[in-house]
Design a protein around this nucleic acid. Structure first.
Lengths: 298, 298
DNA sequence: CTGTCCTGATAGCCAGCGCCTATCACGCCG
DNA sequence: CGGCGTGATAGGCGCTGGCTATCAGGACAG
């Protein structure tokens, strides 16, 4: 039972003539004759009454032909839709982003993305690293922007840009008078984010164990953390992209002695079939943020 | 571009597993793998993301699959219509039946159906009303036996027979001494089925709000419900065809004062091409059960 | 009456492909 | 590390859809 047979049927019904129908279908007349007879045998009924001079559809054929037209049209719709969908850089890309990156990176890259990839709809989704990886695994996301290494063979990744950390200090803090701050000097009064934020772990790794305040007050978001620093609760490390926001809040920023930072990576499932779309998005973001490490060194 | 490829696609999408899909299609797993890959090449896009352990449809596939389902259903409609045109009473009829009817009605009508319509293969499928209507819509069923009105123009229906309800009482229940029970008298301790069963709604409509037990214990099946009544948990209404089963469990049955009952109807899509087959099945069932209202009045 | 033209049907052949079995590659698990 | 389960691959076979060449029969012109 071949789709072509249905097209043949429609052609013969339209032209009432085997030869012209065959021409319209791009096959020879015998081919069409044979295939139509086979179709009739498979369906168990006569479709056309051949009258030595004319070809007339039978009543049974007339009742079927509406369904046949619908079926063929539906298949054509499938092919047309497939043609539209076959561009890997079209459609939507569900993109996970960690919370310490999303509000500072997205405003910078939305416009370049729309310009470079006008047919690709990037749908951002904000969550912590582990949740993002889980959603990648379960196909709820297509790719994710992380600031940690991902070694599992299940995933592929592409480094996009280096983002330096900066020391964030209340204006009246003793270290605010310095040009450069050493990471270890912040250990005494560093504040950190809540569990699950990769920035928390990276801050603790760079500055050593947190003081008493850091142990009890754990900010749920980077925004909250900045408020706490601005209010003089303590110091912290912030990612370079948040520098503008921090300065607007009156926080003093200083470069770090050991130039601690993080690398932002795009991650996707190794088996993700639209790798091209992911890489294109990664390239646009990388191009926009390349050289950011130097620019952000205040 | 073969129709079979589309069926393969649907099977893989349904099972998420090449082996089982192949089994369902009646072909070997390599056949299905190769054909699907060819289809992917012809369409120019990846339909499934193979992940060593799982098979997940891509976004493109998800967008196409509706069209594919429609196309395949339409072709099936062509084949069914052709069968109907050469012998309307041949072939198979996929018949949905609600759970409170199936186990009691089917044993009564299978033999008459085989005798009256030897060329028609009735394939029963048990589910709740809403699910059956959904499966009718999606062409997974040809017709369904329901106990509710169906007013949508999408469907046509044929009333088959009236089935009276009976009061089902534990032997020691006070009302068991009566000849006739009024529906409202059961309100105090009536038990009902789980959500989704039409019998539940009909029982509540006839007897009023359920008591405390009815609110918490909702039987998943009529069989369970009968066990609960037999154990003295409360009373209920049962459809007449279940009378024999109930009595075998030691339940006392009494006719209802207002002769509440339900009408069993056969429902099919208005566009169903084998309306003749549906009506023939309806006639056989109706003939077998006609006059049941009186006979079942214990 | 006969030759020609037009129609669809038939015959014979070939290539493509759908399907099979057997096997591989790879990850998981005991 | 070996067995199991997954999907992919390889090789072979038979069906069948396609072609060209031809047939069969009516229409029509000469």
């Amino acid at each position: 039972m071949n789709l072509k047979d249905f097209r043949y049927l429609l052609a013969v019904a339209e032209y009432g003539h085997f030869g012209r129908a065959a021409q319209a279908c791009g096959v020879s007349q015998p081919t069409l004759s044979v295939q139509l007879r086979k179709l009739e045998e498979q369906l168990g009924l006569t479709l056309f009454e051949r009258d030595r001079k004319t070809v007339v559809p039978t009543g049974a054929c007339a009742r079927l032909i509406g369904h046949v037209r619908t079926a063929v049209a539906e298949v054509d719709a499938i092919l047309a839709a497939a043609r539209d969908l076959c561009d890997p850089l079209a459609g939507s890309l569900r993109l996970g982003i960690i919370p310490t990156l999303a509000p500072y990176l997205l405003p910078l890259v939305f416009a370049p993305l729309r310009e470079a990839l006008p047919t690709l709809l990037v749908e951002p989704w904000e969550d912590q690293t582990l949740t993002l990886l889980e959603r990648l695994r379960s196909h709820e996301l297509d790719a994710a922007l992380l600031a940690t290494d991902v070694d599992e063979p299940e995933f592929a990744s592409l480094p996009l840009f280096a983002e330096p950390f900066l020391a964030a200090l209340p204006p009246e803090h003793p270290l605010a008078a310095r040009e450069v701050v050493a990471e270890a000097e912040l250990a005494r009064d560093v504040l950190v984010l809540a569990d699950g934020h990769c920035l928390r772990d990276q801050t603790l790794a760079a500055c050593g164990q947190s003081g008493a305040l850091g142990g009890t007050l754990r900010a749920a978001s980077l925004s909250t953390l900045l408020s706490m620093v601005a209010a003089g609760y303590g110091t912290t490390l912030i990612p370079g992209l948040a520098a503008g926001t921090a300065q607007d809040m009156g926080i003093v920023l200083r470069p770090l002695k050991e130039r601690t930072g993080r690398t932002v990576r795009l991650v996707w499932r190794s088996s993700f079939p639209r790798r091209a779309a992911a890489e294109a998005v990664g390239k646009v973001i990388g191009d926009r943020l390349r050289g950011f490490a130097e620019a952000a060194r205040i």
